[in-house]
Design a protein around this nucleic acid. Structure first.
Lengths: 212, 212, 212, 212
DNA sequence: AATGAATGAGCATTCATTCAT
DNA sequence: CATGAATGAATGCTCATTCAT
């Protein structure tokens, strides 16, 4: 593992570069072949570094996955910020805009999402489950906020409750859209996002009534 | 009159039983650890047969997966039959009933669906892709029919078009519901199915107007 | 193993046919891939019989080899009969004719000779060594006789001694010719045989003088 | 000035030593049991290194064979240098001396020659065939030169043609001598070499006349 | 900050052989 | 006369990991 001493910056820089290259290689390969299907030797070959150098930067293969996910989650969290609401905008219109923005992550970070989804399905590993839980919770929170913001004007008091009531459905549809895209890479995620916005507007309206 | 003696049949029957046990073991393990995470030795141990016996029944590890999927797909196709519509039933009500029935597969055949979803994400293999394609196509067709049936009374001429327009969204939401359930095994798939029915009723109504 | 009882001839005939097909398949494959390189499963596939049927006809894989060699040796012994001498024919001329005839075996029984040569090189096995010894001894004896016959007229009393003195060299050259042919299948074995006849005529002449 | 430190060299040297030991073990075993008859585990046991270490030094079992042959061919090429001719020496006498020297390789490099001959017989592999072709071509060229040198004085203009005309026969006899020695390890290769010299002197004389 | 060499455990697969039928 | 099913031992090879340098 790298020392934190104040040796020449060049070494530090080179170290960081190598680390990044390993993570890039690992992310690319694991997205395609999965965690088990990607060997440390594969990552070494892909990154151009010798096998053993990987163990200087990471303690284990699982450690690489953890680092890939950590970096990916960071980027993901940055990307899923909801847009501000425009005055007078209907819930349906806001949801359309926000969902469209959120959908960008489907095509911009497919590698991260593939590994993430694979992890959702196979994680017996404790560390992995924790990351999955954190990312899912964050994604859900973002959807809760999005839906809440959509209904903030028409029902300021019950907006949050509406978000809470429909977020799981929204998250499921979002996940499913990603899955569909994996199988049909040419598919239109934009139509799916738009339909999801429509669905949430309707479901939200229903929930609003039930909460009355 | 069969020429094969009863003694021969006994031998054959035992062979078929062994084959089935191998498939059971493989399905169970691959659903949990994935294809790469499941070794042939694992399957052997789980099925109680020696490693080499597996190769009497299947030509390769990939062949086991293919057989697991084939058998699973058959069972799946049997299970996803849509219920008949009741007279006077609203689209929303029929969709609620049908979706609820369809949702049963989520808890009844989780192993098959796990492997199937894993395969959707990682399949570079040609044979695997073909099975995935077949099952997805069948599932989608079933949803098209379900939605069409729901709107058959209110718009006999445009019912099929409505199904076609919303099936991809429905499929995505269905997939996503399964995914959510994998991460939160205690979650309520019934609520998700009910919300999906509501969403489809709304989206279907919209589509109906656009088609007018 | 087959019973020797007087059951219907049909069964016996079928048994013999199967046995022969196994031997044919084994000879073909072992000539190309060697003994170790040929699996029982290979022979089964090539002969069209199930794996286990082979063990009804032969006790072991080594037993198949033994049978292949036995049959091959029989055929070989039939083929290497030397032609009779013509009156007044010079040693060189007779050797030319006889060597040419003997050379036919090089192209007519290449499979047997390949396995035989392979066996010469690798045989640790006792049974194999014995067969090799028998065939080599027979081949050598045939050459002794050939050379003896060639010189029978010019030196009736020392002809056999001449054969004895040059047979090892003749055998070596013969073996080497076969080897060369394996590497260069298009090569001319006839020229080699003719040169061998010339060489033996010369060496025989020398030997004749030394024996005087 | 080499940049590699002495400590690094130590590591490298040990690696080279291990590689050599693997080759030694492989050569020894393959000469006795053939390529197929020698397992990687055998080589590992014989060399004292674990199975997996062999794969650090070589990419495959076939790669080991290739390396064994490469090294063996190099040594072989060094060993088969023909001696210079002495003034006034007869073709027969020179051939006797040269053939005797060449025959040394039969007892000094039996392992290489065994593997080489085995390869001649069984090589379907392309790389193997290439090495066999190279070694055979080199050996033949050496014999051409030997015979040419023998006749250089008595027929300076036709000496090369004589070599060319008899080299294939010489090569065959040489191969055959090796083969005979494998079957009868106690046999006298020296007598065979001497007879081969005699045969070549005679055949060469004939060829000389035909070329006149 | 890195890396060449090594290693024990495990991988998918094939082996020669057996045996109940 | 024949064979479907099975099996323990081995096959060539890859795995994640370690460590001296």
């Amino acid at each position: 593992m790298p020392t934190t001493s104040t040796t020449t910056n060049k070494r530090l820089a080179q170290g960081a570069r190598s680390r990044g290259e390993i993570l890039d290689a690992a992310e690319r390969m694991m997205a395609v072949r999965g965690f088990d299907g990607t060997s440390v030797a594969d990552i070494a070959r892909e990154s151009g570094l010798p096998n053993s150098s990987i163990y200087w930067h990471f303690t284990s293969k699982a450690g690489i996955l953890a680092a890939v996910m950590e970096r990916g989650a960071e980027r993901f969290f940055v990307a899923v910020e909801n847009p501000p609401r425009r005055e007078g905008e209907s819930p349906r219109d806001y949801l359309g805009r926000a969902m469209h923005a959120a959908g960008a992550v489907l095509v911009e970070q497919p590698d991260f999402l593939r590994i993430f989804t694979l992890l959702t399905l196979s994680s017996e590993d404790e560390d992995a489950r924790e990351i999955v839980a954190r990312v899912r919770a964050h994604g859900r929170a973002s959807l809760v906020e999005m839906i809440g913001r959509a209904f903030a004007e028409v029902a300021p008091d019950r907006a949050d409750a509406v978000g809470e009531a429909t977020a799981d459905f929204a998250l499921a549809a979002f996940d499913g859209a990603f899955l569909a895209l994996q199988f049909t890479p040419t598919g239109s995620h934009e139509q799916l996002m738009d339909q999801l916005a429509g669905a949430l507007a309707a479901l939200g309206g229903d929930a609003l009534e039930n909460l009355a």
